[in-house]
Design a protein around this nucleic acid. Structure first.
Length: 806
DNA sequence: AGCACGCCGACT
DNA sequence: GTCGGCGTGCTC
């Protein structure tokens, strides 16, 4: 007898292992590793992933249960992805089931339905309260039973007596969209003959028969009915005659259906691009795993290198994965891939609906496409013949998931590429220190694109010291220089991008009389004023409150706004340059689906002079009319207590600067800062990546940070601050005791944000170079606190190689 | 997660 | 003596 090893959909420590089930003979042909099944688990039914098939089991035969149902016909996880999932679960200390779910589209998750099913015909046998709820029905949802205050112990008793059954339904959320087609099933002559027989007054029927006579193909019923302005009434007789049949065909929801993209062809490569692509093509041809770092300044033509490398891969009959950060922000990028490879491309990104994502995924599973362009999770595209993996803007932190499982798509890419013997290309103008260090050491193959494609110079950058502005009595957030440049562009009908990394109106609200600052009652953070809604909002939890007229401490009415957010900037531009048309892009204006694209399209069509935005406008935008980029507060992120603050600032400034002067018109950048002497601002303004790298590496070495040391961050949180500190101290002790002397254990220290959502957060950090036992020790610590975590809402989060320390 | 089991106090 | 509170441990 065949036995299946199954990971069940119950995310707990105790169930994080395989369970053995008998495969019923009827299912033997279908059940394979990677198939989802429904199984009895304890008293209920749950979904599970088959991860292995074997002949024998250590479980006594009487305890062994049978698989109830198969949920898939074809495996949703390939053997490769099953192995990968297991590896990720172990690397990140996550449950297997969580990892498998993370590798699949949301739509493949299941819902559980608990129901009460009546078994007896005679309702009189039931306790009266239950009979009342059931009324004249034989089946009700358990939810309803609970809502109407049903008596649970009576219900259990009735179930034991066999009067009713508590049943568990596992429901698939996946919906395949189908369309009703009409298909001719007789030869043309039959239609000709039918025309003789159908009475003349049945005009519409005759028209339809004629249609099929000349177009003997399947056609959606809806389309046919619309074409001839008729109803299903004139179709049915033809079906009775056996001329045509109704047939449901699966269709894919196409998020791009309303777009006509012009087909593009390979562009001639510049010398530097040719030199960069050759080693990649060689690796593709030799079916050899190798990691390339494509280090190219903004506008140097990295995308064309990607496109032509993929073309080679497709010619070899293989497939390609392209990861881009938060793809919804870069429709321009997606359009380039769609334009080049057309129907061969599937797109997976967060702006798609669940159904749309599922459809795109199915196109991959069914081998209908060969290229995937997508955000982080697209790295799990179920291709079986990968020829290349490309990760654009590799320095972006979004490639690491910041919840369980905390996988890093870059590491997953390398794992998959090793399996498939194919190259990985990491592309960036500002690679992370880790990546660039590996490239310099020769672990990665470094490819450089030092020049812009248009042969133009990088835009000139001017740093403005805002302290001087203040001394000169300029109290606006615009320096004279920036204001002047903005006015020039507007007069010349050129466009401007303004960048400010803070949304809302003001960053804090303070009483001038007593100095009281309005804080979030649940988090240790100042509330941000949002003018449009006249609300004070917390950016870390959902808290919001009306703006008070007087100070809540001293009742003075001199409450003032401090700090600047995008809303306030928008307002002042309107005041200072009334004729300027501004588009504001931040989380608040792009919440709606498709809002990104609409706003960018407007800007692209020159319906506005200024694009003002946060983070989200820093990446990938390419507008030929933009000749000025203004960074309003370059030091905003510099003062975060984070060892990557300098690196992030350098990357951001370089990326933003790259938005200017990408085409014929020369670009200019104005950076406003209060710390113009800081090396990351100074070097970014001169595009000195290598100098910045050298300088920052020294800093990292001195302070024992990556890439010289590995980091592991353990964050403990609980409502009770004392308990958090106690647990933190204990964890520190355990780590110090079991790790080697070469490892440093720091903490527990309060997180940069001590309290979020009424929970105190403390962290311990481990710095190390080689601690093979670290994972095992942490696992033991987690086991030790397992009960308290379950019962007392204690949380211990482990983040290996964290992106930030927040 | 859900549920059974089993050990304790409160009650007919 | 029994009912029900919740702490503990198991689910192939």
């Amino acid at each position: 007898m065949k036995i299946a090893e199954i990971i069940v959909d119950v995310p707990t420590r105790q169930t994080n292992k395989t369970f053995d089930y008998k495969i019923p003979e009827t299912l033997e042909a279908v059940i394979k590793p990677g198939i989802r099944v429904i199984i009895p688990f304890g008293p209920r039914k749950v979904m599970g992933f088959v991860v292995g098939i074997k002949e024998e089991t250590a479980i006594t035969n009487s305890a062994l249960k049978k698989i109830s149902e198969a949920m898939d016909v074809f495996p949703v996880l390939t053997d490769e992805l099953l192995d990968l999932g297991k590896w990720i679960a172990e690397e990140t200390i996550s449950f297997y089931i969580i990892t498998f779910q993370a590798m699949l589209p949301q739509a493949l998750k299941v819902k559980y339905h608990k129901q009460i099913e009546l078994l007896t015909d005679n309702k009189e046998e039931l306790p009266s309260s239950i009979a009342a709820i059931m009324a004249d029905r034989d089946l009700i949802d358990f939810d309803e039973f609970q809502q109407r205050n049903g008596n649970y112990s009576q219900l259990l008793k009735a179930a034991q007596e066999g009067l009713l059954e508590i049943s568990y339904m596992v429901k698939s959320k996946a919906t395949k969209k189908t369309i009703l087609y009409l298909t001719p099933i007789k030869e043309i002559q039959a239609f000709d003959e039918a025309l003789q027989d159908i009475p003349l007054q049945a005009k519409k029927q005759r028209i339809i028969v004629e249609h099929f006579l000349y177009n003997p193909e399947s056609i959606p019923q809806k389309e046919l009915l619309e074409k001839f302005q008729t109803t299903a009434g004139s179709i049915n007789p033809l079906i009775k005659l056996g001329l045509i049949k109704k047939e449901y065909k699966e269709v894919y929801r196409d998020p791009f259906k309303n777009k006509d993209l012009e087909r593009t062809y390979a562009l001639p490569l510049a010398v530097q691009q040719q030199e960069a692509i050759n080693p990649i093509l060689k690796a593709i041809q030799k079916v050899q795993h190798e990691v390339f770092l494509l280090h190219g300044v903004t506008g140097s033509g990295k995308t064309e290198v990607y496109l032509q490398a993929i073309e080679q891969v497709l010619n070899n009959g293989k497939e390609a994965i392209v990861l881009v950060p938060e793809i919804a922000l870069t429709p321009q990028m997606v359009n380039r891939f769609k334009g080049r490879f057309g129907k061969k491309v599937a797109v997976l990104h967060s702006a798609l609906s669940k159904g749309e994502k599922f459809d795109e995924w199915r196109k991959i599973q069914q081998k209908k496409v060969q290229v995937v362009v997508g955000a982080r999770s697209a790295i799990f595209a179920p291709f079986e013949n990968l020829g290349i993996i490309i990760i654009d803007e590799e320095h972006e932190t979004t490639y690491k998931q910041d919840e369980q499982p905390r996988y890093d798509a870059k590491e997953v890419a390398k794992y998959r590429a090793r399996y498939h013997n194919c190259p990985v290309v990491l592309g960036s103008a500002t690679p992370t220190l880790e990546t660039f260090a590996r490239a310099k050491k020769g672990v990665y193959h470094l490819l450089e694109l030092p020049h812009r494609m248009n042969e133009g110079p990088m835009p000139a950058v001017e740093i403005v010291d805002m302290r001087n502005e203040l001394h000169r009595g300029n109290r606006t957030m615009f320096s004279e220089k920036l204001m002047e440049e903005i006015k020039i562009r507007i007069a010349r009908q050129e466009q401007i991008v303004l960048f400010l990394n803070r949304r809302g109106y003001s960053t804090f609200v303070m009483c001038r009389d007593c100095g009281h600052v309005m804080n979030c009652p649940h988090c240790d953070i100042a509330l941000t004023y949002h003018k449009s809604s006249h609300l004070l909002k917390c950016h870390y939890c959902a808290y919001e409150t009306g703006m008070p007229a007087t100070c809540e401490e001293c009742e003075s009415d001199t409450i003032r706004f401090f700090g600047t957010g995008t809303q306030k900037v928008e307002e002042s531009i309107q005041q200072l340059i009334p004729e300027a048309r501004v588009i504001r892009m931040d989380v608040d204006t792009t919440r709606k689906k498709g809002a990104h694209e609409t706003l960018l399209k407007k800007f692209g069509g020159h319906e506005a002079d200024i694009l003002l935005g946060t983070q989200m406008i820093a990446k990938g935008l390419d507008f030929k009319n933009v000749t000025l980029v203004g960074v309003l507060a370059a030091d905003a992120m510099l003062h975060f207590a984070d060892f990557r603050a300098s690196e992030k600032t350098f990357q951001l400034l370089t990326q933003v600067s790259g938005r200017a002067g990408r085409h014929e018109l020369p670009g200019e950048v104005v950076i406003q800062t209060y710390t113009p002497e800081h090396y990351s601002i100074e070097m970014a303004s001169k595009y000195q990546y290598n100098q910045f790298f050298a300088h920052e590496m020294k800093v990292r070495k001195t302070f024992h940070y990556p890439p010289y040391y590995f980091l592991t961050l353990i964050t403990i949180s609980h409502q009770n601050q004392i308990r958090v500190m106690e647990v933190g101290k204990m964890i520190r002790q355990l780590l110090t005791k079991h790790l080697s002397e070469r490892a440093t254990v720091l903490g527990p220290t309060p997180s940069p944000l001590v309290r979020i959502n009424d929970r105190y957060r403390y962290q311990c950090m481990v710095k190390y170079r080689d601690e093979p036992n670290l994972k095992e020790i942490i696992r033991k610590i987690l086991t030790h606190y397992h009960d308290e975590m379950k019962k007392n809402d204690l949380s211990i989060q482990v983040d290996f190689e964290p992106n930030h320390l927040m």
